[in-house]
């Protein structure tokens, strides 16, 4: 029996207070022990939201990691979040991709769908429309890999639910500014 797996709550599904907005923030930090705990502790300690959070080393020589996080709040709260992040000693730079010019946002998901017969064929057909790739297959299941905006992933996952969705793994949003300018 397929479990009811709904993906992570999409930001769009939560109703925000007036004035509140989602912001995607990139934080360049020293890749040292405890740095992620400092960032997360700041958010939980001060009562800020984290909708998604991605972290990986991006510069092995300089030992820098880039944290991309999606948060929400009023302009005053978002300003506080950025100032508080900048106050952390191992933080090099904070960039608000939502307001500092145009940016590209992507998310990757691995989606497991179990089924046979028509449902199995239908899931493959929809995957094709969404340009999802099959990365694992058994006689009764597929694992699809899909990259895109959060909305696109949400839509695909929604369509897979009646077709035997059993498992979802999502990376959360990564983002980068458009144009020539580095962070």
């Amino acid at each position: 029996m397929a479990r009811d797996v709904s993906g992570p709550v999409s930001p769009k599904e939560i109703t925000l207070e007036p004035q509140e907005r989602y912001h995607t923030i990139a934080v360049l930090v020293d890749n040292e022990a405890g740095v992620l705990a400092r960032v997360i502790g700041l958010f939980s300690g001060r009562g800020y939201n984290i909708e998604s959070l991605v972290v990986a080393e991006v510069d092995t020589e300089e030992k820098l990691s880039r944290i991309t996080l999606v948060t929400s709040g009023t302009p005053m709260v978002i300003e506080q979040i950025k100032a508080q992040l900048e106050r952390l000693v191992p933080v090099h730079k904070v960039m608000d991709l939502t307001v500092d010019g145009p940016s590209v946002e992507r998310e990757l998901a691995l989606i497991k769908v179990r089924g046979t017969g028509d449902k199995r064929v239908e899931s493959l057909r929809i995957a094709d429309i969404f340009r999802a790739r099959v990365v694992d297959s058994t006689a009764e299941s597929f694992v699809f890999e899909m990259t895109g905006s959060t909305d696109k992933l949400d839509a695909f996952i929604e369509l897979m639910k009646p077709l035997g969705l059993v498992d979802v793994s999502r990376t959360g949003v990564v983002a980068i500014s458009r144009g020539t300018r580095p962070m």
């Binding site: 005053m76 506080q80 100032a83 508080q84």
Partner: peptide, 11 residues
């Protein structure tokens, strides 16, 4: 001296 003190409680 601390930017996070600005606009924290009072605009």
């Amino acid at each position: 001296i601390d930017p996070s003190s600005i606009n924290k409680n009072v605009q």
